[in-house]
Design a binder for these strands. Structure first.
Lengths: 350, 350
DNA sequence: TTGTATGCGTTATCAG
DNA sequence: CTGATAACGCATACAA
């Protein structure tokens, strides 16, 4: 019963009476092996229960059969974001059925990030990477190219990129939210946005401004770092200012929940006094009181497509671009008709 | 500028005028190399900018320099749980400074899980694994041992284990919560628990029952799957039943938030009519209205210690057990004095 | 103290 | 067309 070491191609070769090289050719189904030899080799391999050593394979073909995901956010922000778990599940759906493995690196943003990519490339720990949270003039695109890694980007970078990309039109999601509010009679709305240097955050903000404008609504934008704390602060600034908006469109659910908390704290009733929409359609949102109206994207599908695209790139397919289904707006209880007359501001204290 | 292939020990050997074997000895600081040769070899390596090929090293020493984390929960439940991002950040804190890498596998619970461990071991993709979410009579302990992987468990398994473990006394966290409620005058409280087969969930439930009993309180326990949906359902059952409790202790923040939603939906004011405590101290909790009283654990520290312990196990240190700091109770606004007289039940509808 | 041979699977090169 | 050989990159047991 002792765990004897695995059979190698040398064992198979000996048993079949041929050389190691020929065994490799036969096992990989390559031409140049006589039918008789091939059968003998395959039989020998089966009898010995041979399977290739991934490490030896990895050494000789120069691939690691692994893909990398470097998440450059603070743990707090990741923890609040339902995107990554679902996205990673989608990646796994594809990678695990392709004999690939996911190498995950969580880094605090900044210098560490570049070093992480360099280390992954230097040690050839991954064959390719998935680039998420694209930033304005994102240095990672050039870096990864220079390092000789394959890659796929989530969304199209704002500078030339040699990599395939997979996009979700989150602008459309915001558009749906704003149009929903327009139909409810809102004329003065605000957007609590993510960091301007994040491409998807600024895309959402732009869609907000454009759609509000198209419907003749006033549309203010406040920028945050995507955290609940800054989402709460932005909400407070909005609601305590003169002429507060009658609806707020948040760039993620996390801030929307914090904003809801602030509104309630200020004595407002949602959606009677203020309408609120989130983004992500967190599981939690539907259990709040009021349940959160939110933009839903299919992060898991996104992950699966991203993984598939990366594997194709590794197989030599030229760079392409894919668009996934548009996000949908899930209307629940946090949005309602615009209040008839503007609330008096500064009407309540904490 | 062409990316010329990296120097190998053969290059170093040639330059130093010695054999490959001796180079390896010198570079690894092993005895049996004359000072003169050693210096010549080190100089040559420095001049050539040599660094070892991880893959070749991996092949020859039979290690992968990677650790694995297999998460066996549905993406929804992971997404809601702030534990993993923080825990993973803690793992990275240690692994990244040790030249190790984290291989992450997200599997839907069930058969897939075992196969994932088998694959990781068969391909020797990881040297060791971190076992989280320990279950009653957890088959993974024996499986991982049989597969010849090193491991560290989060908490002590309920059956013999050859592995080191790192524990946080979450029972103490629940105790703090219950004692807090006792001081506030509550006499009839409930616990919305996680699955009985999960060791930490049942540990929390046991601590709840014991502490309630010790303080002469009535203490009911309802079991869920840790999801917001079941947390909400349990809360509804509690509040709509006869003689509802005056406080509910939840086994995670996610269910606590959902429970808060239900309470508000039923017309209750928290904490006037009902006190609520969570577990995890999610960032979101402090931004709710009312802000959530919750048990805080240091998941990041837990991850760091778990990684360090696993690395020690890989280095041959015999199995040990470590206890981390007790969780603390962060008192916010969702807990208050017990209502004077019991509310009338069935007093409101949705 | 130092050199040599072996192990892994793949593949370029060479021999029949 | 079929098949053998050697090299790859490192560590290490063994020989000298």
């Amino acid at each position: 019963m002792a765990e004897t070491s695995r059979p190698t191609i040398a064992d198979v070769a000996r048993r079949a009476g041929v050389s190691k090289g020929l065994v490799s050719f036969a096992l990989n189904g390559r031409p140049g092996v006589s039918p008789a030899s091939r059968e003998r080799i395959l039989d020998a391999a089966r009898e010995l229960g041979w399977s290739p050593s991934l490490r030896a394979r990895s050494l000789s073909v120069g691939r690691s059969f692994a893909c990398g995901l470097v998440i450059g956010r603070s743990p707090d922000v990741i923890a609040a974001d339902p995107f990554f778990p679902s996205f990673i599940a989608g990646l796994e759906d594809v990678l695990s059925t392709s004999g690939q493995v996911l190498v995950l690196a969580a880094v605090t943003p900044g210098r560490h990030e570049e070093q992480t990519y360099r280390n992954l490339a230097h040690d050839k720990r991954v064959d390719g990477v998935i680039l998420t949270d694209l930033r304005v003039a994102d240095a990672r695109v050039g870096l990864v190219e220079e390092l000789g890694l394959a890659a796929v980007t989530l969304g199209v970078p704002d500078l030339a990129s040699p990599f395939s990309s997979v996009s979700v039109d989150d602008g459309a999601g915001i558009r749906h939210a704003v149009e929903h509010l327009a139909e409810l009679g809102h004329r003065d709305i605000a957007h609590v946005a993510g960091p301007e240097e994040m491409l998807h955050a600024s895309r959402r903000a732009r869609a907000f401004v454009e759609t509000a404008e198209a419907h003749g609504m006033r549309g203010r934008v406040l920028t945050t770092d995507f955290s609940a704390a800054e989402g709460a602060a932005a909400t407070r600034a909005l609601l305590e200012g003169d002429a507060p908006p009658t609806a707020i469109v948040y760039s993620n659910d996390h801030m929307a929940v914090a904003g809801l908390g602030i509104a309630q704290r200020l004595g407002l009733t949602v959606p009677r006094d203020l309408s609120i929409t989130g983004f992500d359609d967190t599981d939690l949102g539907r259990h709040l009181h009021p349940a959160l109206t939110s933009v839903a994207t299919d992060a898991r599908a996104w992950g699966a497509v991203a993984a598939r695209t990366l594997l194709e790139a590794l197989a030599g397919t030229p760079a392409t671009h894919l668009d996934l289904d548009e996000p949908t707006l899930v209307v629940r209880e946090s949005t309602g008709p615009a209040p008839r007359r503007p609330r008096r501001s500064r009407g309540s204290t904490v």
